[in-house]
């Protein structure tokens, strides 16, 4: 370790003084308000890069995460599907595939929660908090990398859909808009995931979140039209944000469900597929931020 290198690099960065006792005390430059914004982005990029490295180094994780949708595809489309009748001559595969996309997004909050709880449990979150980095970067970085990961999940799922013969009947723009709505839902759920990840004590508990994800994803129009459910259950399913996204993308794929009810929320699925994520974000983003800050309480 050479003192020269250290002091040179300190000089290069301009002004930060190295109190070179033994050679290594180097302080990062003091940042003014304008640098704060710069570092908020730079630190966020560092965190995103770290999270994406995780993704690349653990390709098996994607396989695991896609495991459940794939099993659901097999189960519902091929096992139950033969006995499923959604009306209007729409074949079940066409009905179920968009639902599967929506459900994968809905379950995504568990990935966020798990990543957050692992960092918390291992002390990585504490290390970040003890460093002079931008505090927001921990959360924003997580959010961006989760959306990127969700995009990858969707791409793989779309390939599987294509392989079993599903096609979008909408135009390119409509199809892309549909995937945009899916990512919007996933984006909104990041904040629920961050909040839950901070609330649950450990990884085992995070695994139990499946009990929450399951009804959230399934009590919806994903596998069956709510109009075919008992009234009370149908009402819950209809108002489930996952249903709005599923119905909206079916519309965009040109495969609107023939069994769509005439309730307001179903008739305005497209609007609600945008409004629901905004509502979720408006509620849970502040809660997640507050919970993160309360780690210091």
């Amino acid at each position: 370790m050479s003192t020269t290198t250290e002091s040179e690099s300190a000089a290069r960065r301009g002004g930060s003084k190295g109190t070179a006792s033994g050679g290594a005390v180097v302080l990062p430059p003091l940042d003014g308000p304008e640098r704060r914004l710069y570092w908020a982005f730079a630190d966020c990029a560092t965190i995103v890069r770290r999270d994406l490295t995780h993704l690349v180094k653990q390709p098996a994780n994607i396989a695991w995460q896609l495991g459940s949708p794939i099993i659901f595809v097999l189960l519902f489309v091929f096992v139950f599907g033969s006995a499923m009748e959604v009306g209007g001559g729409l074949d079940y595969k066409t009905f179920a595939m968009p639902g599967m996309f929506a459900m994968t997004m809905a379950f995504g909050f568990m990935n966020t929660a798990l990543s957050v709880v692992i960092d918390k449990e291992r002390g990585v979150t504490d290390r970040f908090r003890s460093m002079p980095m931008a505090p927001s970067a921990v959360v924003t970085g997580r959010g961006i990398s989760d959306v990127i990961q969700a995009g990858l999940d969707l791409a793989v799922l779309a390939l599987i859909a294509l392989a079993i013969g599903w096609r979008s009947d909408g135009g390119l723009a409509a199809t892309l808009a549909a995937f945009g709505l899916l990512l919007l839902l996933r984006f909104a759920l990041i904040w629920i995931g961050v909040l839950l990840g901070l609330v649950v004590p450990n990884q085992e508990a995070a695994g139990n979140l499946f009990a929450l994800a399951f009804p959230f994803g399934m009590l919806s129009s994903v596998f069956t039209p709510p109009s075919m459910m008992p009234d009370w259950l149908g009402t819950i399913a209809v108002w489930n944000p996952v249903s709005s996204t599923a119905n909206a993308i079916r519309e965009l794929f040109g495969q609107a469900s023939p069994a769509l009810g005439d309730s307001w929320v179903e008739q305005n699925a497209m609007l609600m597929a945008i409004v629901w994520p905004l509502i979720i974000t408006a509620i849970f983003l502040p809660l997640a931020v507050r919970k993160y800050q309360s780690l210091s309480r």
């Binding site: 770290r50 490295t53 995780h54 002390g123 504490d126 290390r127």
Partner: peptide, 16 residues
């Protein structure tokens, strides 16, 4: 900017 902190668990990234 002046401190280092090492908590009770080795707070390093497992995957990196």
């Amino acid at each position: 900017r002046q401190i280092g902190f090492t908590g009770q668990y080795a707070a390093v990234d497992e995957i990196l």
